[in-house]
Design a binder for these strands. Structure first.
Lengths: 332, 332
DNA sequence: ATGAAAGCGCTAACAG
DNA sequence: CTGTTAGCGCTTTCAT
């Protein structure tokens, strides 16, 4: 900036004024400054500026998602990026991998870089960093999973209701022997989806013995194996509710292996790519990751702009998309 | 940091030494400092530090990909993140959307935040920012597409050879009427894939009249419509090479619409999710986005660690994965 | 309309 | 082994 000032023959503060579009600069002066900026290909140092700026903002956000390499997270990230970029804010994106240690390290890394706000997926375990965030006045929004602390803004899907809806859909198509395939119970969303499943089954008066519940399925392969075993058992399920997208993919493989894809009903939680091109096409409960991301980032910016109202708990709608696999009727 | 120093009863520089793990601090002093750090939940300000640090590093990288909401980009981003996080470096990820203006703005935003290095996908048009990057000594790696300037490190797939290989695969299965569906020609990779296609067809002595080339397909819908028209024509292609993943999805829809999925051969460039579960399963040329990301970030760190050897041009291997759709033989 | 001086939180250089 | 001083690039405050 000093160099720009020298080249334009003005004081350093005048350059600052021009760069930041502040008033009280003669048009001719501004033009000389811009010319110098172009000549030197000068770019302000936003970080140095934030050190002295009264609001202390770095124009930076931290985003912690399941994994950037996952369509659900990717859609969230894209929504956040779009809103942030429009306001001149850049986004640090980090993957969580459902690991509480990673969560803690990621938040520490964000703090060391003085992000203006945080959008976080929590790995579950209550972290003690959160109280400090409150004190520091850094806006935080938890997405996808409730942190168990109602003093934060949250943006989630109603996992329990959606899971109950999916299960009722299967029951309405005549099924009783319905298997649940779910992720590890420590993951809050997995537990909520299991609750919804159990409620639907219980409300319908179906004996628990008919509805095997397999949890702790951490990846596609585990889901594949688990369903394979169930389908080969003496009393195989006539319908399956797979409570997460990777699990759905494992379930699809197992159904294919055993040739049951046309006779066993399947509903998956989370949409899967190309679900409509499979045979049968896959019925799913679709979340709205774009809506989740957009809502979260809007909340952050509202807080940054001074909104001090009570924490908001947004529930983003899910949609049951009937494509065929979920409408296969139970054998008589 | 001043507060920590006060609480620990030491000078500010001693705190700095402890935080940065520098030598010449008594164990007992260090322990007192750490206690104060924990008590205040203190986090260094990396940005303030970089202002004064001799190497000037911000421990930050800029990554520009097609779109963070895209499996190919996501895999690249994940690989970059993993290597960066391991070294205490955070990553700004931004989406390009094949828009030269976005490219320019994204690079400017990275520069204003003083990233240590840049991993870029270029939107094509030669940008004049690049010369300044060179002068400034900021390491840059171009990925996915050659920038046309050999003075940068690059990490790409051999699009032309891979496209030729895919086309030859179709020819070897007896096809002559082969259609090419491709993206806009201004995108360098699209042009290269078209070249490979044309070479293979020409080498086989197939008349150009038999091999319709449709380019400028910017999205799934356009590809869907284009192939639909071809399949309904008097002399429909017996094989299709779709030169990008969204185009492949559009092609799959068109084949399904017209009931030709079992009689028309298809090879796609880029793997698509669940390709193995479709019927027939989809044969593809798979790129290695993880390998691209890993190689690019390693190049950046090598340059940051002082590697001043000539620019390297990495070509990451592609793989033809034969799953069925590409092995459908031409009708006699 | 413009500029000079101070200081944000930190690390480099040097002194003790 | 520890502390003091200066200054990174910028914005704030205040003077002109």
């Amino acid at each position: 900036m000093k160099q720009v000032a020298a080249l334009a023959g003005v004081g350093i503060k005048t350059v600052s004024r021009v760069i930041n579009d502040e008033p009280n600069v003669a048009a001719s002066t501004a033009e000389r400054v811009w010319a110098a900026v172009r000549a030197l290909d000068y770019h302000v140092d936003l970080q140095a500026g934030s050190l002295r700026r009264s609001d202390g903002r770095t124009r930076t956000l931290g985003l912690l998602v399941g994994s950037v390499d996952n369509p659900f997270s990717g859609a969230i990230q894209r929504a956040v990026e779009d809103a942030a970029t429009a306001r001149g804010v850049a986004v640090f994106a980090t993957s969580l991998d459902d690991d509480p240690d990673r969560e803690e390290r990621a938040v520490a890394a964000f703090l060391q870089r003085r992000v203006d706000g945080l959008i976080l997926t929590s790995a579950g375990r209550r972290q003690n960093y959160v109280t400090h965030l409150q004190d520091r006045g850094i806006p935080v929004v938890y997405i996808d999973r409730e942190p168990g602390d109602p003093s934060f803004d949250t943006v989630v899907s109603d996992n329990r209701t959606a899971a109950r809806q999916a299960t009722e859909h299967l029951i309405n198509h005549g099924h009783q022997r319905i298997a649940l395939l779910a992720d590890r119970r420590v993951i809050r969303t997995a537990a909520e989806r299991e609750q919804g499943f159990v409620e639907a089954v219980r409300n319908a008066g179906i004996p628990a013995a008919l509805t095997p519940v397999v949890t702790e399925l951490a990846d596609t392969e585990a889901a594949h194996r688990a369903l394979h075993v169930l389908l080969r058992s003496d009393h195989p399920p006539t319908a399956v509710f797979s409570a997460q997208n990777l699990i759905t993919i494992g379930a699809l493989h197992a159904l294919r292996d055993t040739g049951r894809q046309y006779s066993t009903a399947l509903i998956g939680f989370d949409d899967v790519p190309l679900a409509d091109l499979l045979e049968p096409a896959v019925t799913v409960i679709a979340q709205d990751p774009h809506g989740i991301g957009r809502t979260a980032v809007e909340r952050i910016f509202a807080r940054l702009e001074g909104d001090t109202t009570a924490p908001r708990h947004h529930v983003i709608a899910t949609t049951l998309i009937a494509r065929g696999s979920g409408e296969i009727r139970a054998p008589q």
